[in-house]
């Protein structure tokens, strides 16, 4: 079975609140950059599918040279092969542009059965690359997947979490699967893995290596453009501390206040 895991390099979640608007606008984000935390689950699921069904796992990302570190993180966890998709022409791509680049790279890589991705990135938050990729590849789309039940007979069966409950769904291959946090517990990079990753020669594919027209990717092709990036207004509230003689009286006073606010 051929598995491709699409990942992104993002700021470390813990440092997201520190990022300034200027850093994002200039593209020079100074926080620690990591493998997108949601993608750790996709990498792990790729490795588990390989254990269960055999085959190859390739990890790919679109980004600048520094994004190689995200690929090395995946190698350090056990992925055998990686490709960096990098070209100045890719800069500023929206989700559809990114999906176009990834789809072309996946086709070039060879036949694929399952494409995995995290449910979204912790910076862009759109969750659009997986659906875009499914359409560009002509693959089925399975999002928010919490369990891959089976892959057999040209079909994949998964469980996914929806607002009203848990759905079990079977779709034909190839499939693009975006995974939720509940799907697994990602393994950590091992010492041997880190050594292997540090020595890995990761191929770089540029626009010229892919069957992609320059006009379909990059900033100029972006159909949804971010403007007026800003920090949300800080919540301005002065806390009213409720303290009465007994806990019961405190509860009664708080209930009075909340009922007066008409939120109950």
């Amino acid at each position: 079975m051929n598995i491709v895991v699409c990942v992104k390099q993002t700021p470390d979640t813990a440092e997201l609140p520190k990022i300034s608007v200027a850093e994002v606008t200039s593209g020079d984000i100074k926080t620690t950059l990591v493998l997108n935390p949601w993608d750790e689950f996709a990498v792990e699921e790729g490795l588990q599918l390989q254990d269960r069904f055999g085959g190859d796992v390739t990890v790919v990302t679109v980004g600048e040279e520094k994004a190689t570190e995200a690929l090395k993180d995946a190698i350090a966890r056990g992925v055998q092969s990686a490709v960096l998709l990098s070209d100045p022409a890719f800069a500023g791509s929206d989700a559809w542009g990114t999906a176009t680049i990834l789809a072309a790279a996946i086709k070039k890589n060879g036949p694929v059965d399952v494409v995995l991705a995290g449910k979204q990135s912790v910076d862009g938050n759109s969750g659009l690359v997986a659906p875009g990729l499914a359409r560009k590849l002509g693959a089925t789309l399975l999002t928010n997947v919490t369990k891959i039940v089976d892959v057999a007979g040209g079909k994949i069966t998964v469980e996914r979490q929806l607002e009203e409950g848990r759905e079990t769904l079977t779709a034909s291959l190839p499939a693009v699967v975006s995974v939720s946090k509940e799907i697994n517990d990602p393994r950590y990079p091992t010492f041997m893995g880190i050594r292997k990753a540090s020595k890995a020669q990761i191929p770089v594919w540029s626009l010229a290596d892919l069957d992609v027209s320059a006009g379909s990717v990059g900033q100029t092709a972006a159909l949804a453009q971010w403007t007026d990036l800003r920090k949300p207004a800080a919540r301005s509230s002065q806390v009213v501390l409720v303290k009465e003689a007994t806990v019961e009286a405190t509860a009664a006073k708080l209930a009075d206040l909340l009922m007066a606010e008409k939120v109950i």
Binding site: P11, D123, N125, L223, R230
Partner: peptide, 30 residues
């Protein structure tokens, strides 16, 4: 073009604009 998971919408010059939180709620963009 698609703006996902928006928190507000407006019409500006006859065109739709959408506000969405990004960077996991730490920033907003129109």
């Amino acid at each position: 073009g698609l703006a996902a998971d928006c928190s507000d919408l407006a019409v500006d010059g006859g065109e739709l604009t959408a506000v969405r939180p990004v960077f996991s709620g730490n920033m907003l963009t129109t």
